[in-house]
């Protein structure tokens, strides 16, 4: 079932991987260790590579994510992933307002977009996590962001390659 991924042209594999995590170093690491015998071995390599992302990698990858509560537009693979991940986030007016305020407070505090692995989370859970993370100092929060990015990348990669 991984045959297509193993044998795909480098550019096709790269662009699919970048839709999972927009960090070229990560995508290259996962791509260059093809062929893989099974899904678990891809995820294993992806996991290790994601733990080695630099702060600059994380910043770049963050820019590819829409704000929580804002719908990703367009037909791209990453937009499709984003919509799925955020599908549990309710979009009623109060929730939107609370998320909007929360995002704003976070951006003021840390100078970047609030990122969370939203799969399976309700709006309330996301808001609770946001408020908790606002209390973090910068190094702690930077580590949380890298961790969320890694979780998102692995979930996306699994969805991409699983049959």
């Amino acid at each position: 079932m991984l045959d297509d991924f193993n044998s795909a042209p480098s550019a096709v594999a790269t662009s699919a991987l970048l839709a999972c995590c927009d960090a070229p170093a990560w995508a290259a690491a996962v791509r260059d260790q093809r062929p893989y015998p099974d899904l678990e071995s891809v995820l294993d390599v992806a996991d290790k590579a994601a733990r080695e992302l630099t702060a600059a990698d994380v910043d770049r990858a963050l820019a590819a994510h829409p704000r929580i509560g804002e719908r990703a537009e367009g037909r791209g693979t990453d937009a499709e992933f984003s919509r799925e991940e955020q599908s549990g986030v309710s979009t009623d007016t109060d929730t939107r307002a609370a998320l909007h305020d929360g995002n704003h407070a976070y951006e003021q505090r840390f100078g970047r977009v609030f990122l969370i692995c939203a799969t399976g989370l309700s709006a309330e859970e996301i808001l609770a996590a946001l408020r908790e993370r606002l209390e973090n100092d910068e190094p702690t929060e930077a580590a949380v962001v890298a961790e969320e990015l890694r979780k998102i990348a692995l979930l996306r990669l699994r969805k991409l390659l699983a049959r």
Binding site: M1, A16, T77, L160
Partner: peptide, 10 residues
């Protein structure tokens, strides 16, 4: 089609 999403993109 019974394939992975990657195969579809491919």
């Amino acid at each position: 089609l019974g394939v992975s999403r990657f195969t579809v993109y491919n």
